[in-house]
Write a protein that binds this DNA or RNA. Structure first.
Lengths: 201, 201
DNA sequence: CGGGTTACTGTACAACTGTACAGCAGGTCG
DNA sequence: CGACCTGCTGTACAGTTGTACAGTAACCCG
């Protein structure tokens, strides 16, 4: 679990270790341009180091990607852990959804990276989506053990529902935004249509 | 508009011109791996030609991408044109939605390519999303002129609604499928949850 | 002090990239 | 016939890629 940082204090880039700066730069660039279109040199220069150091710390590009994914998963589990497990089942679920939503809102790079990860998923590779659904599954199991989640539906159904609820809107929003931009004279800010995403069982 | 092909007859690859085979191969590979990760040589060998010919016909990779996008837009407009513009407003809209849905179902590469295009949209570039929303806008304008679409809402709102309805589910489905695969013992085929995507105004 | 691990730079290299271009076969037109 | 165009191959080239590695500076531990 990540070392807690005093709330209200944003971490300044120069205070981080070069290794962390490289990982963060990689997350940003992977999210923005995609993994394939991002060179190790671009990551290095964004982090203020040389290619050599990137290789020194992470060995290969693939290993760097895994480190980035690990960091993303950690942000999720930290966000979930930050929500108090108190109150009724729906209160706990709502608090967790809110914590995840806040985390995603404050780090758009995570959203963009995730969107790509789900899109590109090589399918067989044990990847980010797998890790996240395991995290969600554990979350659901915990709630069940505490008697806070129903056991009427299967675990798989509950995981799908949770993830779609937490992520679905974020995935479709760029489509809506980009179309809205084409007609920007008529659709500004608050009047923008709200997306509805969910699953019917 | 594309030359009509006898229904029930699937076009065999060797009957197509090399230029068309190159464009089709590019669509497939761009959809599967993304544009950045697809080399001209890979496209050439998938089409059974050499790199030289790809350059000969399309000049640059960027021009090839534009040809691919044009072909995608054409598939949409052909699908829409194939739906009879008869009946009530909602009948016409439903028929068009059905025609688009059938086209998308029969060419998964188009779906995958579109997903990427929306994701990667460089924003400022006049790209596929722009072209498709223009196509949709024209479609809406036609329906309005025929008195088949309401003018209560703005054009932008109607375009967003239409595109989200036609495309939204397809974009999120891979997320659902991949999570469902993680729990494949419990979620098979028909019992898979149905996604609900729409906009609330 | 010395020895060793760690953080880091700079350079080197083979593989691959998009693009340019010379050349060739086959057809059409004058 | 020759001139010309089109479809096509093969090769060449400069630039970029991921990775390897030698070397240097800074640190810790004995």
């Amino acid at each position: 679990m990540a070392q807690p940082v005093p709330t209200g204090t944003s971490v300044r880039a120069e205070d981080l270790t070069a290794k962390a700066r490289i990982r963060n730069a990689a997350l940003d660039l992977f999210a923005e341009r995609g993994e394939e279109a991002t060179s190790l040199r671009a990551i290095a220069s964004a982090a203020g180091v040389t290619v050599g150091l990137v290789v020194h710390h992470y060995g290969t590009k693939e290993a760097l990607r895994e480190a980035v994914e690990l960091a993303v998963v950690e942000r999720f589990s930290d966000a979930i852990a930050s929500a108090p497990p108190e109150g009724t089942a729906s209160e706990v679920v709502a608090a967790r959804d809110r914590a995840v939503a806040e985390m995603l809102e404050s780090s758009p790079a995570v959203v963009d990276y995730l969107r790509r990860a789900i899109l590109d998923g090589r399918g067989q590779r044990r990847d980010l989506v797998t890790k996240l659904s395991e995290l969600t599954a554990n979350q659901v199991r915990d709630l069940r053990r505490a008697g806070l989640a129903s056991t009427k539906h299967s675990l798989g159904e509950q995981v799908v529902t949770t993830m779609v609820r937490q992520l679905g809107r974020l995935f479709l929003q760029p489509l809506v935004d980009r179309i809205a931009d084409e007609f920007d004279e008529s659709l500004d800010g608050a009047r923008r249509p709200q997306l509805v995403v969910g699953v019917r069982r």
